[in-house]
Amino acid sequence: MTLAFLTAWAGAVPGYMTPLLLASIGLILCERAGVLNLGIEGIMAGAAMAGAVAALAGLQPARALAAGTGAGLLVSVPFIIAVVVFRAPMIPAGLALVAIGLGASGALGRAAAHKNFAGLGNVGFPEALTGLPLVGRMLFAQDAVVYLALIVAGRASFVLFRTRAGLQLRAVGEDPATADASGVDVQLHQLAACIVGCALIGLAGAYLSVVGSRTWTEGMVAGRGWIALALVVFAQWSPLRAIAGAAVFASADALIPRLQTLGVDVPVYLLSMLPYVLTIGVLVLFAALGWHRQGEPGHLGRAYIRQDR
């Protein structure tokens, strides 16, 4: 492998990594508060569509991303109300959200399908930096959201593990009855976590259309939401480990087409399984080491109703 190949490969990784990272941080926030959000694929679909519609309407890329983020949040509203306010079962509510998001985006985005728009360009670092061998393109020839995602990961980790609000949030996900007894408002914390989390998932979806493809078609999220769900487990519910996990998944994703263009016989289907294989591997490894339930919130996926305490 030549240096040029490695430089180009490394340069392509952040583009693959950013939507996965944003989506998984969003999921981690929801799940740390005990809310299992299986609707991610639907949220991303709605956001990708809205981002494209906004960009086609002439909005600046940054505003189109914001519009997509807002749309992702809007799509999530029924889910958030159902599971946080009415404490509906999270798994069916999440799966319903997938159907709603995919269906609504397909129907509403019809007029926007297959139209090109400008999209978000790279941050203008000087040639001296972007031209560096190996790391130049990876570190400096990227769009602003790539850097934003890393900052978000750092912030999320700080809030979760270094602040009182984060402690309370994790307490709600771990043992809502105890948190409730000690005066923490369970629903309020879940609500806040879901709003921020779903907004981040929306940003991830909008990134796919506004930055990734600069065009929108139905079904373009193409399972990336499910990969983010696996990534959360792989990262053991830690935003910082999610950076590493997203980088690993994205490296494989970016490598496949590059090997294909060289004519290497890549086992595409095996590599596509990689996120899931690695996730199972991590689970098995931690189980074997005796580190059970490393970061998994104790009350994940179960509704908390005070009378049941």
Binding site: A8, S213, D253, P257, Y269
Partner: peptide, 21 residues
């Protein structure tokens, strides 16, 4: 390059950039 999908504009864009590289 075969993308192993009929519909994945994100991957199609990435494959194109890999070819251009």
């Amino acid at each position: 390059v075969y993308t192993n999908s009929w519909w994945d504009p994100v991957r199609e864009g990435a494959v194109t950039r890999a070819m251009l590289d």
